[in-house]
Structure formats: structure tokens, C-alpha cells
Amino acid sequence: MLVWSRRGRLLTFVLALALFGVLYGLPLGVIALASFAGQWNNVLPSQMTLEHYVNAFRGDSFDQLRHSLVTGCVASLVALVAGTWAALALRRARRLPARVFDAIFFIPSAVPSVSVGLGLLVAFSHKPFLLNGTVWIVLIAHFVLISAFTYGNVTAGLARLPADVEQVAESLGARPGYRLRRVTLPLLAPYLIAAFSLSFALSMGELGATVMVYPPGWVTMPVGIFALSDRGSIFDAAALTMLLAATTLLVLLGLSRIPVRGSAR
């Protein structure tokens, strides 16, 4: 405990809460309020309505939500498998190759996602890689953007595995596959879940690259929200945002409840 006195602790707590409220609560609160607003000219909306939610349930926003969910799940799952695989493979690699690979994995997160989308668009617009206008290019864009996070999470998890357990497993007669299944992956489970959650959340909110590559038949929720607010339907956009946030939160809550047995000491 850094602050010892009771009053000091209370003060710190209030300060932290206020800061948290301003940084996180305010924008979210405004969006939440907007999603119920009929008219908003003053500090607060002058009239409340459920109309935007009715619109949301009536329009094609359910398709958009479905597209987002499918994209998020598939891309995160593939990224999880690929990131775990890469982390496992590179664990025993020499310093330099591992570093190079690290860099390649992380470059997409260091450039604007619009640029990633543009790159994919150009790269996959010609035979033999003609994916432009398909769902695949959206999935690839999301995969490229989130795989660094799964890879990073799993690598961090591997570094924190309890010492020697894998080697002891081997000497007890476990072949590599058995060891991976019964020892390494179960011990990594918390990190795998965290990796999946993070990449799923990132994918659900991804706009920059998606907007560049999405085909007409695969509009994701963020693209839909962007289109609405571009048209000036701010309140409808806010209602969709609330829907997206609630769905994502639900999935993340579900993930956090997956039981992890007797995790590492």
C-alpha cells in the first residue's frame, strides 16, 4: 500500500474515480444518453425516446452485428491458433530470428489500420490473389491487425510457465503432442483466454481497415455506425454503438467465466 493514512487513501480513491469518470465514463455516458435522445440542443437532451433502438431492431443492424460477431470470432480464433503456434515455435529460436519475427508481427499494429486496409486492397486485387470484394479480405484484415496481440500474449504466458514442468512431463513419458495437450496448453489457458478476449474486442471495434476492404454484402457494425454518423444520424449511430458495446461485453464476460483449473502457483 503506497498511501497509509485513511484520509489520504480516501482522497486518492475519490481522485481516481473522478479521473476514471471523466476519461471513460463521460464519453460512454454521452453516447448512452444520445442513444435515447429525441432532441439534444442543450447540455442535456430535451426529450427522451426509444425510437433509435426500434430503428436498430428494424433495420439491417442485426445483419451487421452478425457480420461483426462472425468476423470477430473467426479472426480471433485463427489469430489465436496462429499466434500460439508462432509463439511455441519461436520459443526455442535464436535471438535474432525471434526478434525479426516479433517485428513483422507487430508492424501492422504500428501503422494506421487504414494503411493496412489499403495495402491488402492493392495486394489482393489481382490474380492469383483475387480476394477483393469477398468476405475473406475482411477476415484477413482483422487477422493481420490482431495476431500481434495473440502472439504477444501467448509469448508472455510461455515465459511465465512454471520452471521444469514441461521437461518433467517429458521424462515421465509424455510425447511432445501429449505434453502440449495436457501440460503446456492447460497452463497457458489464462493467457489464451486473455489473448482471445483482447483480439475479439479489437476486432469488434475495428473500422479503419474494414472500411477500405469490406464488400457490400458484409457490412460490419462499426462500418454501419460510421455510415450512420456520416449521414448525420448521430442518435441512431449511438444506439448501434450501445448494441455493439453490450454484445462485446457479454461475450467478454462469458469468456472471463471459463474456469481455469488450479492455475500456476
Binding site: P162, G173, L187
Partner: peptide, 15 residues
């Protein structure tokens, strides 16, 4: 076919 006991025991914490 070796039995091994290491310094920190390395029991499988999830079992």
C-alpha cells in the same frame, strides 16, 4: 524410462 525429481518439484499446478 526415468523418474526425475527437480529442485522445485515442478508438480503440475493444474492437476
Amino acid at each position: 524410462n526415468i523418474g526425475m525429481v527437480v529442485q522445485n518439484y515442478a508438480l503440475f499446478p493444474h492437476m
